Computed example of a mutant assay.
Amino acid sequence: MNQLTRILLVDDHELVLWALVAIIREKLPDTQVLSASSFDQGFETIKNTPVDLIILDIDVPGGNSTKMIEKLKSVRADIRVLIHTAMEEEDYSIKYLTAGADGFLSKASPLPTVAEAIQTVLRGEKYMSPKTQNLLANSYLKSVTNPAKPKEASTITPREAEIITLLLQGKWTKEIASQLGIKWSTVSTHKLSIFEKFGVTNVIQLYKKILQDYPDLIDVSTTQVKPKS
């Protein structure tokens, strides 16, 4: 008899969980599906129950960092982690794959693609969308042609520009989340990305860095940050 396959879904969105369960039951009917609504709950689950695959939303409560991958794999090195997120693929896919994730999947992906990603990772292979493959190829080519060049802070997205503007206006994370109509954990995830891009660890350093090295990004009179591509 084949060993039972267990998949743990770590996501706090009921509709997403429902859709994933439906896909797994259709494509992998002999699979046991577990779920957790926070990273800490998911971590406790894998400490007590052997799991083959974790489908993880990086915006889940208690998460928001690539360190989640290291922590999960510290419990069992061969556990597979498929990132399933609504966060921008351009900003997060390579970062999480480099940190040890076994696949990166956008929540905007069609159902057949979701099924393909799950089956690919369960086979022990890496899953990357064509978009992420292109990003990875371009990143590699840039590293070869200009290995010493750091990531440009001017690659901030429109959403990150909004968040930087509010941070520099003294807004707290929950205030920003309320004003933009997004979860506070989403704001925290964007903040981590922003700090990494600018090479800083707090808002004061961010403001000084922008004024010193990227003055064209900000209108000092209004503290308005302009996104660049």
Score class of each variant (00 low, 15 high):
T201V: 12
Y214E: 03
Q41K: 10
Q133G: 15
L4E: 15
Q179T: 13
K226H: 15
L211T: 03
T186A: 13
K142A: 05
L15C: 06
I54T: 08
L217A: 06
E14G: 03
A108N: 10
I164L: 04
T45I: 08
I163P: 00
F195N: 07
E88Q: 09
I118K: 01
R159C: 00
L211S: 04
K47A: 11
L4M: 15
V203L: 00
L192H: 13
K27I: 05
S65H: 09
L4T: 15
V200E: 04
K208C: 00
I156R: 09
Q41S: 07
L4V: 15
G62F: 11
I58V: 10
S154A: 14
T113H: 01
N2C: 12
L15P: 01
M128R: 11
T49M: 10
G103P: 12
M68Y: 03
L20F: 04
Y207Q: 14
K47I: 06
K67T: 15
T49N: 12
F195C: 06
P50L: 08
Q212F: 05
K183V: 00
Q119F: 07
I218A: 01
L20Q: 02
T66M: 07
D216K: 15
S154Q: 13
L4H: 08
G181C: 14
L122Q: 05
I94M: 05
T157M: 02
S143Q: 13
T157A: 01
I7C: 07
A36V: 00
V75D: 03
L206V: 10
L28W: 08
D102S: 14
E175Q: 14
T85P: 10
T223I: 11
A108C: 05
V75W: 11
